[in-house]
Write a protein that binds this DNA or RNA. Structure first.
Lengths: 160, 160
DNA sequence: CATTTATGTCAGCTTTATTGACATAATTTG
DNA sequence: CAAATTATGTCAATAAAGCTGACATAAATG
């Protein structure tokens, strides 16, 4: 049932000219960022679904492995999500033995998060295809120039 | 009610050493991509919520403005989502006058998508803060070297 | 001792995606 | 021309990942 909202022909309000670089806006790089990230995050999906996990689990596993012992508050700050969003995902990772909680030594209210061996292995397994993609994309760019790419990406991040 | 799952101390299975560059994996750039994209996409959110829209609407408005006249199938292929996912978002954009459908000239089954003036303005409004962020990130990198950044991003995209 | 902080949990809601099934109209093919 | 395929739309059910608000507990802090 093709939509009855379709016009037979364009009208006065129809814009037919492609939006392209005016006002110094580089639409090309905006799109490249979209496509690059879309494909970059698609790599781990197959691996994750084997454990019944999603991208939210990936992010938690990644940062727990990168900064073992970080508190729940630290993790929330890094991911910029709410504790209620984290709750389900974290609970699943703990129950299935990928992440452990250890009572904080100075502050016993804190739950410090650590990976298990299984959690470390998962993190590595997820990082491998992403690393392969990055290596491929850096192919033909010499190490001195690769610094510029990191500098650019760092510049995209909010300073705060 | 802090979790009773927390251990008092680490055990044999607790991994305490940070996951860092082994196997030639550059975890730093993996994280930079995450943070860069997280903040890059956060810019348009405030603008979108004024119209009651989300990121899915942003992507549709963007590509309809960049390639006026593209078919629904083209859009699905670009976004890599299903038509059922697109349906609601597209319907809302059409009903609120940001996007128009025009019957295909050769193939009258096709619904060719065009922005309205209002749709064009929204697309530009959303692109501005993203462009500002990119310009800031490119600051201090000379134009010749900026090509490398695009080359890198292009290399991250699946070829097919 | 009162307050604040770190964490957890319950309930309900939203957005964005999915799969599967089916309908319509237009094009293409035998 | 009749049959099959294609482009689109829609209904229903479901899932993942986020949100707000409210409330509870235990530990730290004033």
């Amino acid at each position: 049932m093709p939509s009855e909202r379709a016009r037979k022909v364009p009208d006065n309000d129809t814009v037919t000219c492609p939006m392209s670089d005016g006002e110094g806006i580089d639409f090309n790089i905006i799109e490249l960022l979209f496509f690059a990230y879309r494909d970059f995050t698609s790599d781990p999906d197959v691996i994750l679904s084997k454990s019944g996990f999603g991208r939210a689990h990936h992010r938690v596993v990644h940062f727990v492995n990168r900064r073992p012992g970080l508190s729940v508050a630290d993790l929330l700050e890094t991911l910029k999500i709410t504790k209620q969003s984290l709750a389900r995902v974290l609970k699943q990772l703990i129950e299935s033995g990928f992440v452990q909680q250890v009572e904080g030594t100075e502050d016993r209210r804190q739950r410090c998060l650590y990976p298990t061996q299984k959690g470390r292995e998962l993190a590595l397994e997820l990082a491998r295809p992403q690393s392969r993609r990055i290596t491929k994309a850096l192919n033909g760019i010499d190490p001195g120039e690769q610094i510029l790419i990191k500098k650019f990406l760092q510049g995209m991040v909010d300073s705060d």
